[in-house]
């Protein structure tokens, strides 16, 4: 498990080359900045179609949208073949490339326990193509393909629990992180960097455009996602050992997270109550697993 760090321990040197092409206040651009800061120079960054393609002071390689897991595999095996496995194969993919079109290939790479690090910036929709739903989109969220109307309340189903699915591949390390908690994020990337085998960190990356809030509020939104229990921060090792990294005495009500985002503005009180109940139940399970230090998958 990662070790806590303080803000003073965060490296000053930057690995992203900016200004980049992301929108104002983009959570994904911040996720790239923080993660690559922690990784340092000896990595090859892997990309697939998504937004924004933050540029780093490292080489980049890329492939088709559906090929993320395979490309990492190829690089990692290739590096080993040429005797350069000191170089790390690191992905910076979107939720679409992780949860959906690239899911099969990443699952297979996890099953083979490839020596790769997958960083997913989860902005909970296909933002590059204009905010269409993905299986990372939370229930009731309005996107351009789950609009609200007499026959639709936004996305009908819950977000897919991808970190747990990958943990169930019994890989060395799976974690969640958030741009609202940079010390935690950097600690996790730093820790995962030097592990061997398949490692995945899913980073909550609020998107002002798709989530429909003022760009200045990206951190506020990220933080309240964690504080309400909707985006728990945790680590899972070998599919079994579990640790919650952020445990407030009391969770904030989910409405604090939902109401500033206009993607949820159509939600009724009943619907909010449903999300509240669901969140509380899941949080309960997580805290119990944390006490045990174990998950049963």
């Amino acid at each position: 498990m990662s070790e806590r760090i303080t803000r003073a321990q965060i490296p000053l040197s930057e690995m992203t080359i900016t200004p980049g092409s992301a929108c104002q206040g983009c959570g994904a651009a911040l996720a790239a900045r923080l993660a690559f800061k922690a990784l340092g120079p000896n990595v090859i960054r892997h990309g697939i179609p998504c937004c924004p393609d933050s540029v780093t002071k490292t080489p980049r390689t890329g492939t088709v949208f559906e090929g993320g897991g395979a490309l990492l595999t190829g690089t990692s095996r290739g590096l080993k073949a040429i005797g350069r496995d000191d170089v790390k194969a690191v992905a910076f993919y979107g939720d679409g490339g992780t949860y959906d079109i690239g899911f099969q290939g990443l699952s297979a790479a996890a099953e083979r326990n490839e020596d790769v690090l997958v960083l997913t910036k989860d902005n909970e929709a296909y933002m590059n193509t204009g905010n269409q739903r993905s299986s990372a989109t939370p229930k009731y969220s309005m996107t351009s393909t789950t609009p609200v109307g007499p026959k639709s309340r936004g996305k009908p189903r819950h977000k897919k629990n991808v970190p747990f699915i990958f943990a169930a591949h019994y890989v060395p390390y799976v974690a969640t992180a958030s741009v609202g908690f940079p010390e935690d994020l950097i600690a996790k990337v730093t820790y995962a960097k030097d592990l061997k085998g398949f490692r995945m960190i899913i980073i909550q990356a609020p998107c002002p455009v798709g989530w429909r809030y003022d760009p200045a509020k990206t951190i506020e939104v990220a933080r309240s996602g964690v504080q309400t229990g909707l985006w728990p921060l945790y680590e899972i090792e070998d599919g079994q050992n579990f640790k919650l990294n952020y445990k407030p005495k009391e969770l904030k009500p989910v409405s604090e997270y939902l109401s500033p985002q206009r993607r949820f503005r159509h939600m009724t009180e009943d619907e909010t109550a449903e999300i509240q109940e669901d969140t509380t139940t899941k949080w309960d399970t997580l805290t119990r697993a944390d006490e045990l230090g174990r998950l049963i998958i």
């Binding site: 490309l71 095996r77 290939g105």
Partner: peptide, 23 residues
């Protein structure tokens, strides 16, 4: 190294990635 994969798309991309680093 022989990489036993889960489909042809992956096998093509695996060799693509390995070739790009020079294997």
């Amino acid at each position: 190294d022989f990489v036993n994969v889960e489909g042809e798309l992956t096998s093509q991309v695996v060799v693509q990635g390995a070739s790009r680093v020079g294997a």
